[in-house]
Design a protein around this nucleic acid. Structure first.
Length: 799
RNA sequence: GCUGGAGUGGUGGAAUGGCAUACACGUCGGUCUCAAAAACCGAUGGGCUAACGUCCGUGUGGGUUCAACUCCCACCUCCAGCACCA
C-alpha cells in the first residue's frame, strides 16, 4: 500500500516557501490580520508546548490568508535572561555565543514544523538593534517620571542572586527556581505602573475576547478596593496613626489597633517604654517568621507595644499591638481591629485575650454576648453600640459614616490598590543595561539618546554567585558624566527581561526602523494584534506589562490604540500520562523524533485533533498513528478520482465547507477535522471528482500545509495552494429534498418519518399521528397536545 | 477563604433546549492473502430478551419544560490561580 513520502514533501515545500518569501507581509489595501504567538526563550530545542502554541497560530494565520486577509505572522526570540548565564558557566562559553547558537537551532526546528512566518521580521531581544530601544523607552519613562529609583525592601531570590518583581514571586517562591524569596533593603529602579492602574482596570471592558479567567486574574492583581483612612492618634504624643478599612461601619467596635512589624512609626512609639526590648525583638524576627509562614500556615504572633491609640469617633483609647498578620505593603500598614466582625481579628483577640464589642446585630439570628461568639459576624446587620448610627443597616452606615468622618476631618474616603510599582533592576549580566550614569556632582544622569545603545560588553566575569557582573568590568563602569564631563560610573544592573517582551509585538511592525522603537504608520496599520496565542502562565506578568506599555506609547502619541491584543487564546498544556511533560519526570516526547518518523503534518494534525486548543492535551502515540492513517487515506483519493461526484456527495461537501469554516473561525479545530474525516468516509463510499478533491485540499491546507501543497500541485495547479481561495458553500446545496423527522410519544422516540422538505406543519402532524408504529402507544389514549419542531421532530403528548 | 474551569462509553472527546455518545483511538468480526501486515467493510454504553424490542443511562439531589448533558436552585468531587489585602 502506498504511503506518502512526507520527508521529501516537507523538505521540498519548506524550501519553496523560503525561496519565494511566501509569507512576507507588506502594507497594502487589503484588510489586515495580525496573528501572533508568544515568542519563545531560545533554549535550542522546541518542546511540545511550543509545537501546540505555534501550530494553533499557524492554522489560524493560514486560514486568514486563504480568506483574503493581509496576514502578519512574525516570530522572534525572547533572548535575554538567566538560563544563558547558567549555560555559559556550565559549558564554559559566553552567554551571547550560546544564545545565538540556540536561536539558530530553534529557528531550524520551527522551520521543520512548516510554520508560515515572515522571517524577514524576526527580532531577538539581545540584539543591539532591539535593546537600544528598551533603553530609549526607559529614558522616555524617566523623562515622564515613570521610572524612578528608590530604596525599599525588595524581593530577593538567594539562589538566582537577584531581585524579583512582585509578579515574579509565586507562592512566596521565585518563579524561576522556586527558592523561598527573602526581603532585602536595596536601592533599585522601579516603573510607576501604578500611575496606570485605573486605566488598566477600566480598559478591561474593551477586552471582550479575552478569557474571563485571565481578566479575573488581572483584576484580582490590580486589587482595587474602596474604603476609608481613619486617623487614630497615639494617646500620649498625639502622633497620628492612619489605618485603612473597608468597613467603616464597624468603627465603634474597634477594640485594639495593629501595626505591621515593619511600620516606620513603630520604633518611635515604643521608645523608652518597658515593652521596647520585647517589641524590638519581635520586629527583628518578623522577616524570619514571614519566610517560615510561606511553608506552613500563617501564625497569629503579636505583641503589645505598651502604647494606646485614641479612636477619633468615640475618644476611646485602645491598645496598640504589632502583629505578623498586618502587612506593610498594603493600605497604611496599620489596621483597626474589630474582632466581632472580622475573623482574623477575632482569632487574634481570642489568642491574646483582647476585648471585643459587637456593633452589628445580625438579621434573623438571635444576638449573642461577645464572650459566646464562636466566630466573627462578617455579614449584614443593623448597627448597635454605635452612637447616633444605631439602627442603620450596615451597608447604609458604611456610606454615612465615611462621609461623616470626612466632614469631621477624622478620616478620608480612599481607593486602595494591591498593585505595586514594577521593580525592574536585576543584578545580572545577560540583559539590557539600564542607561544611566552616576556623577559625583550631578547625581543620576540619563545617558543622552544619541549615545544609545549603552552596549552590553561581550564578556563579564560572572559566576552566578551574586553582585552585578557588570560592576567588575572596569571599561564599562568608568565613563564620563554626559552633563559635566567629569568622571562618572555607569549603572551596573540590567533590566528585567519582561521589559523586553512588553513591546516586541510593536517592533515586528517595523523591525528595521532606525529612528524610533517602531514606525508610527506601520503600527497604525498592523496594530492591534488581532489574535494573540500563548500560555496561561503569562496571564498577569507579560500581558499586564504589555498593556501598560501600550498605554504609555498612547500617551506619547506614538499609538492610537489603548489595548494591544484584541483577542486572546490561552492554549492548554501537553500532558503525558496525566502529567506535564518535563525533564525531571522523564516523560518528554521530542517533536523532532516525531517529525522524522511521521512528518510535521501528522504531528500538527494529531495535536489539533486530540483536544480543543484551550484544554489540556494528553499525548497518545496511537492517536498520532490515527492522524497519519487519515493523511494516507486522503492521499489515496488522488488515484481513485471519478469523472463526476454524486449529487449526495456534493451536498455533503457543502455541509462540510460550512462546518469546517465555522469551526475554524471559532478555534474548534478538533471538530473541524472531524467534519473533514466524516466527509472523507463519504468519499470512500461514493468517489470524489477533481473539483471535490480540490475543495477538500483547500480546507485541510491550514492544518497540514505541506501535504496539501503537494497534492494541489499533483492534481495540476500551477500556483501554490495558499494563493487560492478558501472554499465557500452554496446555501442552496445545503437544502435536502426530503428529511427524516423523529416522532416521539411523550418525549420518547417511537418512530421516524421520511418526509418531503417542504411539508406543511399540518400535513406533518397528520402523517405522524397516522404512523402505524405508534399504534401500540396511542391506542386508547387521548392526545393532549402535539409539539412540532419544523424540520426536526414531532412530539405527541398523550394523557 | 476568594476567583476561574471541569465532571458524558474501555480511552481522547462531540452535542448550548429537540434522536446522548459525532469523529478518532482501542477491541471484536468480515473481505483480501498460503499466512501475516497494510488496506477496505461492519459491530461496539449498560441491564433484560431467542428475537422484534424494551427499560436504565451525561457527578448528586431538587425544579422549570411537551422535551434538559444543555436553563434555574442546592450540594459533592477534581484541576488551576490568588490568598493574613484589613
Amino acid at each position: 500500500m502506498e504511503q506518502y513520502d512526507f520527508l521529501e514533501i516537507e523538505k521540498k515545500w519548506q524550501r519553496e516557501w523560503e525561496e519565494n518569501n511566501s509569507f512576507r507581509a507588506e502594507r497594502d489595501s487589503r484588510r489586515k490580520f495580525y496573528c501572533l504567538e508568544m515568542f519563545p526563550y531560545p533554549s535550542g530545542k522546541i518542546h511540545m508546548g511550543h509545537v501546540r502554541n505555534y501550530t494553533i497560530g499557524d492554522v489560524y494565520s493560514r486560514y486568514k490568508t486563504l480568506c483574503g486577509y493581509n496576514v502578519l505572522h512574525p516570530m522572534g526570540f525572547d533572548a535575554f535572561g538567566q538560563p544563558a548565564e547558567n549555560a555559559a558557566i556550565k559549558n564554559n562559553t559566553k552567554p551571547g555565543t550560546w544564545t545565538y547558537k540556540c536561536i539558530a537551532e530553534m529557528r531550524s526546528e520551527l522551520r521543520k514544523m512548516g510554520f508560515a512566518y515572515d522571517w524577514r521580521r524576526e527580532v531577538a531581544t539581545c540584539d543591539n538593534d532591539y535593546y537600544r530601544w528598551n533603553q530609549w523607552i526607559f529614558l522616555k519613562m524617566l523623562e515622564k517620571g515613570l521610572a524612578y529609583k528608590k530604596a525599599s525592601p525588595v524581593n530577593w531570590c538567594p539562589s538566582c542572586a537577584t531581585t524579583l518583581a512582585n509578579e515574579e514571586v509565586i507562592n512566596g517562591g521565585c518563579w524561576r527556581c522556586h527558592s523561598a524569596v527573602e526581603q532585602r533593603q536595596l536601592e533599585q529602579w522601579y516603573l510607576k505602573i501604578t500611575r496606570y492602574q485605573e486605566r488598566l482596570l477600566e480598559d478591561m471592558g474593551q477586552l471582550e475576547h479575552w478569557p474571563s479567567k485571565v481578566k479575573a486574574m488581572q483584576e484580582n492583581w490590580l486589587g482595587r478596593s474602596e474604603g476609608v483612612e481613619i486617623y487614630f492618634s497615639e494617646e500620649e504624643s498625639g502622633r497620628r496613626i492612619t489605618v485603612f478599612t473597608t468597613r467603616p461601619d464597624t468603627i465603634f467596635g474597634a477594640t485594639y489597633l495593629v501595626m505591621a512589624p515593619e511600620h516606620p512609626l513603630l520604633p518611635e512609639i515604643i521608645k523608652g517604654r518597658p515593652e521596647e526590648l520585647k517589641v524590638k525583638e519581635f520586629i527583628s524576627g518578623a522577616a524570619g517568621r514571614r519566610k517560615a509562614a510561606l511553608l506552613s500556615e500563617p501564625g497569629k504572633e503579636g505583641v503589645f507595644t505598651g502604647a494606646y491609640a485614641v479612636n477619633p469617633v468615640n475618644a476611646e483609647a485602645v491598645p496598640i499591638w504589632t502583629a505578623d498578620y498586618v502587612l506593610t505593603g498594603y493600605g497604611t500598614g496599620a489596621v483597626m481591629a474589630v474582632p466581632t466582625h472580622d475573623q482574623r481579628d477575632f482569632l487574634f483577640a481570642k489568642e491574646h485575650s483582647l476585648a471585643m464589642r459587637a456593633v452589628i446585630r445580625p438579621v434573623n439570628i438571635s444576638p449573642q454576648p461577645e464572650e459566646n461568639m464562636a466566630e466573627a459576624h462578617e455579614g449584614e446587620g443593623v448597627l448597635v453600640n454605635s452612637g447616633c448610627f444605631d439602627g442603620l443597616a450596615n451597608e447604609e452606615a458604611k456610606k454615612k459614616i465615611a462621609v461623616w468622618m470626612e466632614k469631621e476631618g477624622t478620616g478620608k474616603i480612599v481607593t486602595c490598590w494591591r498593585l505595586r510599582d514594577w521593580l525592574i533592576s536585576r543584578q545580572r549580566y545577560w540583559g539590557t543595561p539600564i542607561p544611566v550614569v552616576y556623577c559625583q556632582d550631578c547625581g543620576i544622569v540619563a545617558v543622552p539618546y544619541e549615545q544609545l545603545p549603552v552596549k552590553l560588553p561581550a564578556d563579564a566575569p560572572f559566576t552566578g554567585e551574586g553582585g552585578s557582573p557588570l560592576g567588575k568590568v572596569e571599561e564599562f563602569v568608568n565613563t564620563c558624566c554626559p552633563n559635566c564631563g567629569k568622571k562618572a560610573r555607569r549603572e551596573t544592573d540590567t533590566m528585567a527581561t519582561f521589559f523586553d517582551s512588553s513591546w516586541y509585538f510593536l517592533r515586528y511592525c517595523s523591525p528595521k526602523e532606525e529612528a524610533f522603537p517602531f514606525d508610527r504608520e506601520e503600527a497604525a496599520y498592523w496594530m492591534p494584534v488581532d489574535q494573540y496565542i500563548g500560555g496561561i502562565e503569562h496571564a498577569i506578568l507579560h500581558l499586564l506589562y504589555s498593556r501598560f506599555f501600550t498605554k504609555f506609547f498612547n500617551d506619547l502619541g506614538m499609538l492610537e490604540l489603548k489595548e494591544p491584543f484584541s483577542c486572546l487564546l490561552t492554549q492548554g498544556m501537553v500532558l503525558k500520562d496525566g502529567e506535564v511533560m518535563s525533564k525531571s519526570k522523564g516523560n518528554i516526547v521530542d517533536p523532532d523524533s516525531i517529525i522524522r518518523k511521521y512528518g510535521a503534518d501528522t504531528l500538527r494534525l494529531f495535536i489539533l485533533f486530540a483536544a480543543p486548543p484551550e484544554t489540556e492535551l494528553e499525548w497518545d502515540d496511537r492517536g498520532l498513528e490515527g492522524a497519519h492513517r487519515f493523511l494516507n487515506r486522503v492521499w489515496r483519493i488522488k488515484d481513485n478520482l471519478v469523472p463526476a461526484a454524486s449529487a449526495d456527495l456534493l451536498r455533503a461537501m457543502h455541509r462540510m465547507i460550512k462546518k469546517v469554516t465555522e469551526e475554524v473561525e471559532s478555534f474548534k479545530f478538533n471538530t473541524a477535522i472531524a467534519a473533514a474525516m466524516e466527509f472523507v468516509n463519504a468519499v470512500y463510499q461514493s468517489g470524489a471528482d477533481k473539483e471535490v478533491y480540490s475543495v477538500l485540499l483547500r480546507l485541510l491546507a491550514p492544518f497540514v500545509p505541506h501535504f496539501c501543497e503537494q497534492l494541489w500541485q499533483e492534481i495540476g495547479n500551477k500556483e501554490g495552494i495558499f494563493l487560492s481561495d478558501w472554499p465557500r458553500y452554496e446555501p442552496e446545496m445545503l437544502k435536502e429534498s426530503s428529511l427524516t423527522i423523529v416522532v416521539q410519544v411523550n418525549s420518547k422516540v417511537r418512530s421516524k418519518l421520511r418526509v418531503p422538505a417542504d411539508i406543511t406543519e399540518a400535513e406533518l402532524k397528520r402523517l405522524a399521528q397516522a404512523d402505524e408504529h405508534l399504534e401500540p402507544w396511542l391506542a386508547g389514549k387521548t392526545v393532549k397536545k402535539v409539539v412540532i419542531v419544523p424540520g426536526k421532530l414531532v412530539n405527541i403528548v398523550i394523557q
